[in-house]
């Protein structure tokens, strides 16, 4: 399935947002504001969801009308009808589509299988919002169609699967290691680079001695730590 690339998975979710307002604000705009106000980097609720490599949220308000010129040799051939009449010319234009719902789009690239990942989203997604209130994942999906029937991890998983779209092609230009493995590797790369620079020109016995102390400190095979924190944005 194109949604997987080795152990990496591409999750694409389009959750329809209820049409309607709360006061003077549409449910779509409330949802958008909640997404915009999520804390970022290591404070993001996604930093707490195990194995999330990269993920995003946005609102699909509508689709675009293709008003730009192009050079599609087959289909724009119909433009030639413009020499006959204006109405034929107008008919050769692209059709206009309008969505009847707005959609909350959640796209995630993660390690592992979908059910385990979504259980992590349900259980671990938490943050304190700009008003100081503790929030979980329900705060983002609250105004989506039929989300009021979601009550636990299994109904959340079932809900997301109903909103899920398969990828036709998932390109992995990185690795498909677990996030813990990736973060530990980045930590080691950073630390060993420093070690190599600091030990230039030193004697063999000094480097060897310091290397042993270095290995004892960084514990290369211990994924639990020391390591980078997910979302870490400063050295």
């Amino acid at each position: 399935m194109a949604t997987k690339s080795g152990n990496a998975t591409a999750l694409t979710v389009l959750s329809p947002i209820k049409n309607g307002n709360l006061g003077e604000t549409s449910f779509a705009d409330i949802t958008r504001e909640r997404c915009l106000r999520l804390p970022i980097h290591e404070e993001s609720p996604l930093a707490k969801v195990p194995n999330t490599y990269l993920a995003r949220l946005f609102i699909l308000d509508n689709v675009f009308y293709e008003s730009l010129p192009a050079n599609d040799s087959v289909f724009n051939f119909s433009d030639i009808t413009s020499i006959f009449s204006d109405s034929a010319r107008k008919k050769a234009l692209p059709r206009k589509d309008t969505l009847k719902s707005k959609y909350l789009v959640f796209s995630s690239n993660f390690h592992g299988d979908l059910d385990t990942y979504l259980t992590g989203v349900w259980e671990k997604w938490s943050y304190i919002d700009h008003e100081g209130t503790q929030r979980d994942v329900r705060h983002i999906w609250e105004h989506c169609v039929a989300f009021d029937r979601v009550t636990d991890a299994s109904s959340f998983i079932a809900y997301i699967k109903r909103c899920q779209l398969d990828a036709s092609l998932f390109f992995n230009g990185s690795t498909d290691d677990s996030l813990q493995e990736q973060l530990k590797s980045l930590y080691l790369k950073q630390e060993f680079t420093k070690f190599a620079v600091e030990h230039q020109g030193k004697s063999a016995s000094e480097i060897q001695q310091d290397f042993k102390a270095f290995i004892a400190r960084v514990q290369p095979e211990n994924l639990e730590g020391p390591t980078w924190q997910a979302g870490k944005s400063t050295p």
Partner: peptide
Amino acid sequence: AHYYNAYPMAASNDVKSAQKVK
């Protein structure tokens, strides 16, 4: 609206080279 990256300081090449370094 919200974009999360588990390693904001690393480029894709850093992730791949870190795997080799480890």
